[in-house]
Simulated assay, not measured.
Amino acid sequence: MRRMKHRIVTTIQRYVANPLNRKRPAQQLLETTGRVSGVPRVVPVGGRRAGNEFWFVSEFGDRSDYVRNIRADGRVRVRLRGEWYSGTAHPLPEDDAVRRLASLPRGNSAAVRVMGTDLLTIRVDLDD
């Protein structure tokens, strides 16, 4: 069941939701470097900036391509309010992802809780 849910959700995201959301000026975006291709990969995310950190939760944890990219190369860029910031991403499996979602934007957090199967907190340390 988890595998089927993952396949359905990621297919909808890849071909419908992500292309539409990337075009929204206010959408937060995460840019990683493809672990195989070496080219930039951009995905919409929903999180919150706290000082020089940006926090979000991956709904499929290590099965998410962008998490695999982060594990291969933690250097990322994040678009917040239309401006790009460089930083280093850190997967935090020890963090309580469900609790973390309570501190993040409600709409995205609700979707992640409903759609997700393997929640994983990610912290991006933003460069100055």
Rank of each mutant, 00 (worst) to 15 (best):
R2W: 03
G61C: 08
R48M: 10
F54E: 05
A50V: 10
N21M: 15
A102K: 07
Q28T: 15
P44E: 10
L29V: 13
I122D: 02
M115F: 12
R68M: 11
V67F: 03
S86V: 01
R100N: 05
S64T: 07
P25W: 06
L126C: 07
T121A: 13
V112A: 11
M1G: 15
R79T: 11
D62H: 11
W55M: 09
L119H: 09
V36G: 05
M1N: 14
D96E: 06
H6P: 05
T32N: 12
R24M: 14
L29N: 08
P19I: 08
W84V: 12
K5A: 13
S64N: 14
G38I: 06
T11Q: 07
R7M: 14
A97W: 00
V98S: 06
P40L: 15
G38T: 08
R48K: 12
Y66D: 04
G74Y: 00
Q27C: 09
R2T: 14
L104G: 03
L20F: 11
R100H: 03
V39I: 09
Y85R: 06
A97M: 04
D118A: 15
N52P: 00
I70F: 02
Q13H: 10
R22C: 07
D95T: 12
Y15P: 05
I8G: 08
V45C: 11
R77W: 01
L101M: 05
S109D: 00
R113P: 03
V39R: 13
R7L: 15
R75W: 01
L92W: 02
V42F: 05
T33G: 06
P91F: 04
A89D: 00
L126S: 04
N18T: 10
S37P: 06
E31C: 12
K5V: 12
L126H: 02
R99N: 08
V39Y: 13
T121G: 11
R2H: 13
